[in-house]
Amino acid sequence: MKFSFIRLGAVLHKELREYRRSPFIVLTMAVLPLVFLIEPLITIFRIGPSVAASTADRAVSGTFLVLLIAPALLPAVIAAYSVVGEREQGTLEPLLTTPLRREELLLGKAIGVVVPAVGLAYVVFAVVQVCARLFASNTYVVSALGQGSHILAEILFAPLLAGWSIWVGIGISARASDVRVAQQLGTLSSIPPLAVVALVSFDVFTPSVTLAVVFALILLVADVILFRVVSALFDRERLITGASAQRAPSAGGQVPPAGTVRRIPRIGGSDDG
């Protein structure tokens, strides 16, 4: 049986329905971007018209860092819940009894997290851009925010950073036995790519379109590798029983026909039927 987009779509649809019905998830998804919206706006509005371009540039870089934290951090907790959470509520086994392939399940869950996370990140970015144009007093800040390279970086990095967090989170979730542990580890896992973004923001690397594209490509490759690794980590047997699969070559032997009464004698015992 081949990869099925219908099955993937069924998983995705279920994931989105569950979010809608879970006030806690919706609330955390809404609150976090709000925080990441307020902080950049305050930073931008505090830069006066006479502030030097270099200072403004540093502030803009910091703003982009904050804006990229949301898509990296937001999906980590939800992704870390995805498999171990299903296992805890007893819904994983019925799912695994269907023809669903692990790639379909994992991609369905990943897309289910990436869509709202990246969507919210783009909305926050758009709101910052609009507010800056309407209310910022420093013209350099407005032009720096609107630079094509910055916009490209946001568009590229938001899904790629989210992808990293999601795959690491799902990988942890597929191996963890406790939801809390999985979520804490998932949150920590979103830090490494942000460290690279921070290095750019703090001028350790000079930001450029080339650097952005190279970094984006590295993240893309990392995301693909992570997907493969997480697929390999997804062991049905371990998830169901807590033990890894141990297989051996099949043995031959006669099979009694259906409708046969067969007393299996005990080894070393008497067949006292």
Binding site: R7, G9, A10, K14, E18, G90, T91, E93, T98
Partner: peptide, 23 residues
């Protein structure tokens, strides 16, 4: 399974829609 493992936040139909999709 012994525990039917239904999604408690989804309706009966929504649960079945998921599995109809998987099949």
């Amino acid at each position: 399974p012994e525990n039917p493992g239904l999604y408690r936040r989804l309706t009966v139909t929504e649960n079945l829609q998921l599995f109809a999709g998987l099949y």
